[in-house]
Design a protein around this nucleic acid. Structure first.
Length: 540
RNA sequence: GCGCUUGUAGCUCAGUGGAUAGAGCGUCUGGUUGCGGUCCAGAAGGUCGCAGGUCCGAUUCCUGCCAAGCGCACCA
């Protein structure tokens, strides 16, 4: 609708210019704002003001001119009920009953596909997220990034992108050696927690061969952690599916990607030797200092592995990389971007940084976890508050916010939690439909032009904005707008429900119109909950 | 010292170059014996961190400062 209105305005401006009532100028970029509660339509706030500035005319006069032309154009289409000029030169658009009613037909025809677009058609997106070191259970930050990446993938797919969810396992570096020492429980141990105890028992005490090499032990422990903690948590608790798990050791190093990347960068003359180390000229691509690829002792850095990994992604034909990282990794952005460019990647490379989550209880931060040692494991939180609550709660907030998750509140007030509010609306809607069907109402044929109540119009306007929500989220990764939309839609529905009786045997035709609206809301709310990744229950 | 992120209602957080800055929770008042009360309507509560700048207009953009979190390796 946003785009539709924009083009309608554009058309009006052109016509006014042709008639000479507006000066000719280059049309600035402008947007039409979202539906506003007080109005049942949409409005643009600054177009007339912007034009007035360009054309050197009075803002209110410009708004009047636009209004006249648009009303003329609209005579046949009947998109608007009225257009008014208000304030310092704002145009308010009130959508017609016809336009609003059509949305129900559209939704019921398109079903789950309502809101889908093809803006991403032909684009292969690599969506890498979590990629936690295989040195312990997933923590809260991993959980937040995981939910984010997963829902982002769902939205991108709905917008027509071909998305590959990918998890990178850093199983070749020093972290694995540290893990090995930890499992051996020798002087160089760094990780602690119940899971280390378990691994110590399995691999050392009950180990078949008395292997003491830290790297060997670490590699075995890492495999075990991925298999017994990380993957079950992802699949069973978090509901996240990855198409690809890439092992640094097996898929990158042993497949020769690091070597290939080094050769390629050398051929491009983007490396140099200094103090017997090999450096990549990342400063030529915006980094603030060059980075070492091969250390003076001849071993490769982690960054060299990253270059190999980027090369492997490039060979798989992606046109866009999305990399969701913990905020503590923001320092890598410049060098990874530089590396991709140096290797010849020409697509879009987006970074999302997820800020840390502080778990609060009784006003104090909860730092320790029985299972995971000095961090809190995501599956422990899910066991406490449930997967739907954890997921919805994390997704509600922008990744930029340093969020405080109040555990006490989530546990005690679970009935008041927004996720239940949205789910309850879905259950209630479903209940209405069931009842209507059992009473023999025709839920297919209602005349939507009867939906003229203010609460009905507000609900319709909300449904109307769903496709914009999908498009915006796919473009700007504003995933947190989805839970907010679910809450707002549920809110509009409850308000409508309170004011408008749906099932009424004395007003059959009105009931049938409202039942079609109810069906539309079920579809859109259900789809929103599905994208968020929580249940859309038909009863609770 | 440099960099990234953040600073909006009592709390957790949305939002925006424009008309009276929003939601949930909490507080207060009312409604609802009716399609599922896990509901609805309303009220109170804000110098949008501080100070400058750009602009007709800044909470939004720019600069500086203050505060919080996180980074600044030939570690991963």
């Amino acid at each position: 609708m946003k785009i539709h209105l924009t083009s309608t305005i554009r058309e009006a401006i052109n016509m006014a210019q042709e008639k000479g009532s507006l000066a000719v100028f280059e049309l600035p970029h402008f947007q039409v704002n979202r539906p506003e509660e007080a109005l049942f339509g949409e409005y643009t706030s600054n177009i007339a003001l912007m034009i007035a500035k360009q054309a050197g005319q009075n803002p209110r006069a410009v708004a009047e001119i636009l209004r006249e032309v648009m009303l003329q154009n609209d005579a046949e289409k009947q998109i608007f009920e009225k257009i008014e000029v208000a304030g310092p030169g704002h145009l308010n658009f009130f959508l017609s009953q016809k336009t609003l009613g059509q949305i129900v037909d559209t939704i019921l025809t398109q079903g789950n596909l309502y809101g889908s677009t093809d803006i991403g058609r032909g684009q292969k997106v690599n969506n890498e997220f979590i990629s936690a070191n295989p040195t312990g259970p997933l923590h809260l930050g991993n959980g937040r990034g995981g939910f984010f990446g997963d829902t982002l993938a769902r939205v991108l797919r709905k917008a027509g992108y071909e998305v590959t969810n990918e998890y990178y396992i850093n199983d070749a570096g020093e972290q694995v050696v540290k893990l090995g020492h930890s499992v051996l429980q020798d002087d160089e141990a760094v990780y602690a927690g119940e899971y280390i105890e378990v691994l110590h028992q399995e691999l050392i005490v009950n180990g078949v061969n008395q292997e003491k090499d830290a790297r060997m032990i670490g590699e075995r422990a890492a495999e075990s952690i991925v298999r017994t903690y990380i993957q079950p948590t992802l699949v069973e608790q978090m509901g996240i599916y990855f198409e690809v798990f890439t092992s640094e050791k097996r898929d990158i190093v042993e497949q020769g990607y690091v070597d290939k990347a080094l050769v390629l960068l050398q051929q491009k003359n983007l490396t140099y030797e200094l103090e017997s180390a090999v450096w990549l000229k990342t400063t030529e691509f915006g980094d603030d200092k060059d980075r070492v690829l091969v250390k003076s002792d001849g071993t490769r850095t982690y960054f060299a592995s990253d270059c190999g990994y980027l090369l492997s992604k490039m060979e798989r034909g992606f046109t866009r990389f999305i990399l969701t990282l913990g905020a503590d990794h923001h320092g890598y952005q410049a060098r990874l971007r530089a590396a991709a460019e140096a290797l010849g990647f020409v697509g879009r490379f987006d970074f999302v940084f997820v800020q840390m989550v502080r778990l609060m209880k009784d006003g104090e931060e909860v730092r320790m976890s029985k299972r995971a040692g000095n961090v809190v494991a995501i599956d422990e939180l899910i066991e406490k508050v449930g997967a739907d609550v954890a997921r919805f709660f994390f997704l509600m907030y922008s990744p930029d916010t340093h969020m405080n998750f109040d555990l006490g509140l989530a546990e005690e007030r679970s009935q008041k939690n927004p996720v239940y509010y949205a789910q309850y609306a879905h259950a209630r809607l479903s209940g209405i439909l069931r009842k209507a069907q059992s009473l023999g109402f025709d839920v297919e044929r209602g005349d939507v032009s009867l939906l003229t109540h203010p609460k009905e119009r507000l609900l319709l306007a909300e449904l109307l904005s769903f496709p914009d929500l999908i498009a915006e989220t796919a473009e700007h990764y504003t995933v947190h707008h989805l839970p907010q939309y679910a809450i707002r839609l549920a809110d509009r529905f409850h308000s409508f429900y309170d004011a408008c009786r749906v099932i009424d045997v004395d007003q059959r035709s009105l009931s049938e119109a409202r039942l079609r609206l109810v069906k539309s809301v079920i579809l859109v709310l259900g789809e929103t909950l599905h994208l968020i990744g929580v249940a859309a229950p038909e009863s609770m």
